[in-house]
């Protein structure tokens, strides 16, 4: 099984995220729950990996541990060459700010701040001057064709717009790992597509992403789909050549 899991797309660059033999046990004794059982997963720059599985399969646990919000019972989590399971608190905090971006189901934008201020916030926390952070934020929004939203407050934006701003916030600065937990969960189908299209384009531009979803149609935007069950990877798809798809076997559909 481990040979199959290390099956990776052709990439000359090192992975942005490596999960090695990850386990997570909640509780102990009779109530012990094995949320994760020996997960191995590498995510490379330019790659979007979808994690699918029934509820209780460990999808969200995997994501929170990958982002340093929870600690594994055993195993290693390596983000940009740093093992966050052994990093001290200060290193971990810096890594979370500088390397890892989160996108949540409910957007989590700060209501009192405009879109640009929300996107600028992680950079300001990094010690970048307010003016420079604002400039970076506006540039990031413009690059994602969200420039017109820069001065709007969250309650002046639709859910889809807020979620796209949240993706901009997740990837502002040098960060290139985005962890998205059911980012389309609160959105209608069409808006969900636009959020996925943005996530996809950020990965095409070099970011690495993990998308946790139970919606196959959204998972289908990923390069790889990893199937989780009872805390273990049971299977994963590998990207094939779309060009050959509809030539030969299509008649069988």
């Amino acid at each position: 099984m481990s040979e199959r899991l290390s099956q990776q797309p052709q990439s000359s660059q090192p992975p942005v995220l490596q999960l090695q033999q990850l386990t997570r046990v909640h509780g102990s004794g009779a109530t012990e729950v094995h949320a994760l059982r020996g997960i191995n997963l590498d995510v490379f720059p330019g790659e979007l990996v979808a994690v699918m599985g029934p509820s209780g399969s460990g999808k969200s646990t995997l994501l929170t541990i990958a982002g340093g919000l929870d600690v594994p019972t055993s195993g290693r989590v390596i983000v940009e060459n740093t093992d966050i399971t052994t990093a001290d608190r200060k290193t971990l905090a810096a890594l979370r700010r500088r390397s890892i971006g989160y996108v949540f189901q409910d957007y989590n934008l700060i209501p009192a701040l405009t879109a640009a201020e929300n996107v600028a916030l992680p950079r300001e926390l990094d010690g970048v001057s307010a003016r420079k952070a604002r400039g970076e934020a506006v540039a990031a929004l413009q690059e994602m064709e969200l420039g017109h939203l820069a001065d709007r407050f969250p309650d002046e934006m639709s859910g889809g717009q807020q979620q796209r701003v949240a993706i901009a916030r997740a990837l502002v600065g040098d960060r290139r790992l985005v962890l998205a937990d059911e980012p389309t969960g609160a959105l209608d189908s069409e808006t969900g597509e636009s959020v996925l299209a943005l996530l996809r384009s950020r990965c095409d531009a070099g970011a690495a992403g993990i998308l946790v979803t139970h919606e196959p149609r959204f998972a289908a935007w990923a390069d790889r789909v990893v199937f989780l069950r009872d805390g273990a990877v049971v299977d994963q798809t590998v990207r094939s050549q779309a060009d050959s798809l509809l030539s030969g076997q299509a008649a069988e559909l």
């Binding site: 699918m52 196959p216 149609r217 998972a219 289908a220 935007w221 990923a222 390069d223 789909v225 798809t237 590998v238 990207r239 094939s240 779309a242 798809l245 509809l246």
Partner: peptide, 10 residues
């Protein structure tokens, strides 16, 4: 799901 990935890319 693999087929869906391909269709989605197309």
């Amino acid at each position: 799901v693999n087929a869906m990935q391909d269709y989605t890319r197309l």
